[in-house]
């Protein structure tokens, strides 16, 4: 029963989604709208569980490892301050509020910094991975080289030739490979979904 009821629910919800996909009538669309609202409600209801988990793991870590205490404290203070700073709509939308300042002067630079680290990691990964070990690796290397060359200024007509060649690479071989993967992914997703609906695939519920 513990497994059968969730599986029945999965089947029922899946069938409703399939039916609404092929039935455009207002009744079906209203049902679809309500089901989408449910997803939002479930997400919102699950949020306190997430917050509890975050706080619990932070406190446990602080208790267990003295070195972690400072970071745990920063996490808890940051969490509390952001909640308080955004309690009222006006505090949230005003450009001079604490919430906006925290957003503009802490969150924005911190996120931008983390994203910019990607450039360093790409350089490092390219340095290690782009080696012409085999004929295929050499093709990959040359292609990557040509595509990156697009961003390096070159005298005309080299620059235009390169831009046209890069466009061809992106639109023909790149797209062929991507479509092949996408067709596989699409079919795989349909198969996986049918398996889920029929209760064949149940590993996400802990298996049999």
């Amino acid at each position: 029963m513990k497994k059968q009821l969730p599986m029945f629910l999965v089947f029922l919800c899946g069938m409703i989604m399939i039916v609404q996909f092929v039935v455009p009538h207002e009744y079906s669309q209203t049902l679809f709208q309500h089901s989408q609202d449910f997803v939002i409600v479930i997400g919102v209801l699950a949020l306190p569980i997430g917050i509890y988990s975050l706080m619990k793991s932070t406190v446990t870590k602080a208790r267990r490892e003295p070195k972690e205490r400072l970071y745990s404290l920063i996490t808890i203070i940051g969490f509390a301050v952001m909640i308080i700073a955004g309690l009222k709509r006006d505090w949230f939308t005003s450009s001079t509020s604490l919430s906006s300042n925290l957003f503009n002067y802490i969150l924005v630079p911190a996120q931008a910094t983390l994203f910019s680290m990607l450039a360093f990691y790409i350089a490092s990964a390219a340095y290690r991975a782009f080696r012409a070990r085999t004929a295929l690796a050499a093709v990959l290397l040359i292609t990557a080289f040509v595509v990156m060359l697009r961003l390096i200024p070159m005298p005309e007509p080299l620059s235009t030739w390169n831009a046209e060649f890069v466009r061809w690479i992106l639109e023909v071989p790149n797209m062929a490979a991507k479509r092949a993967i996408l067709i596989g992914v699409g079919l795989g997703a349909v198969t996986y979904s049918i398996k889920l609906l029929l209760g064949i695939e149940r590993a996400y519920m802990g298996g049999d």
Binding site: G43, I49, G50
Partner: peptide, 16 residues
């Protein structure tokens, strides 16, 4: 990174 996923992951690991 998602509370719903956390609940599911706990159930999956516990069952395993």
């Amino acid at each position: 990174n998602d509370p719903v996923m956390m609940v599911m992951a706990k159930a999956t690991v516990k069952e395993a």
